[in-house]
Design a protein around this nucleic acid. Sequence first.
DNA 1: CATCAACGGAGCGATTCGCTCCGTTAAATA
DNA 2: TATTTAACGGAGCGAATCGCTCCGTTGATG
Lengths: 207, 207
Amino acid sequence: MSTRGRQAEAARNDRLLLDAAREVFAAQGAGAAVAAIAGRAGVGIGSLYRRYATKQELQQQLCVLAMEQAIEAAERGLAADDAWAGLAGYIRDCVAFGTGALAPLAGQIPVSERMWQTARRGSQLAGRLVARAHQAGVLRPDVTALDISLLMELFSRRSPIRAAGQDQAHRQRLLAIALDGLRAPARQSLPGQPPSQQEYEAPWHAG
Amino acid sequence: MSTRGRQAEAARNDRLLLDAAREVFAAQGAGAAVAAIAGRAGVGIGSLYRRYATKQELQQQLCVLAMEQAIEAAERGLAADDAWAGLAGYIRDCVAFGTGALAPLAGQIPVSERMWQTARRGSQLAGRLVARAHQAGVLRPDVTALDISLLMELFSRRSPIRAAGQDQAHRQRLLAIALDGLRAPARQSLPGQPPSQQEYEAPWHAG
DNA sequence: CATCAACGGAGCGATTCGCTCCGTTAAATA
DNA sequence: TATTTAACGGAGCGAATCGCTCCGTTGATG
């Protein structure tokens, strides 16, 4: 072992597990087998269950972690000087990390109070990013922060059938197209009504 | 019964089944339960198995049907006078119908020779649509026909957690954004290499 | 009324799942 | 080096779910 014995291995395994879980849930949905996660992480099932008492506990931890990563990405975006670069970087980071990948978990797990708080803080920061881009006139005016959340949700989903590397390359190309479509001025206005906060978070109330 | 007794009911059920199967596979992947399909179609499991001997046979029939629909959409697109309207209409039709939704079936079912032929004809027509848009200068030059196929694949995926109506409305808004991003001139060029035909169809060779 | 094609769904065996339990491994300690 | 022990991997258990069969019911037809 590289750094310091069994404790270090445990810490490394913990991160490997969370990364693997995110990829697997993003590709296969909430019903993905626990064995698939352990396998992808390269650890035994026993090591998974020593850290998380149940599959559900792993999923909850995963949600909190991903939302915290999204908050960090939003803060980085707000720290950028250019409003567009900040927003685009935020979106790209979230998609690359797979923040929206936990969407398939919605309705399958109870949402703790801490999860609601983290989500609220995240959407607050995202709202600031979007508002700043709107004021700077670089973001098409008819798009809302929730539209962008749904866009990230869509792009966070991993392909269940292609190699991870190829899938990532494809996703980056398609995301570049979508980002171009987000820039002002819009060429064709968006159809229908913008999504409401209520319908956006409705799936999470079912858990 | 409305039109003509049991035969008419059977024909209607057949269509209901195929529609339901497309939605369910698009939302939950190839592993979706047969009972879920029958339930969504509002028919019994017995009625499903009277028409399709196995789940796999249903999936194959579904693939052929969806590809034929895509071909019709491409022909409609080529019949349009305006190159951009033709291409955009084709993409919108395919996404609305869920053509790319069978992507999660790739590698899970054997691909018959007829399926290959249908796919070849479809990609040929799609290539013509894209080439015409390129020549007219309305489509960003760095995007390929395979990029667009992958884009449709991405947007064909249904949300496993939201009501179908809401999901459809969201999808149309996001697709409008992506279509704007496809128009020439591009604001930021696409990263990486365009996908190759080989890697695009590789998943289908595994069945 | 008698016939029978098409219906819905209970339930079978097989498979897969979440999770437990234990023998093994290797770092820490004496 | 010998002993201890914390973390490891994975076989296998009971439960749940799956694809599919089979049969009693329904309702149009002649």
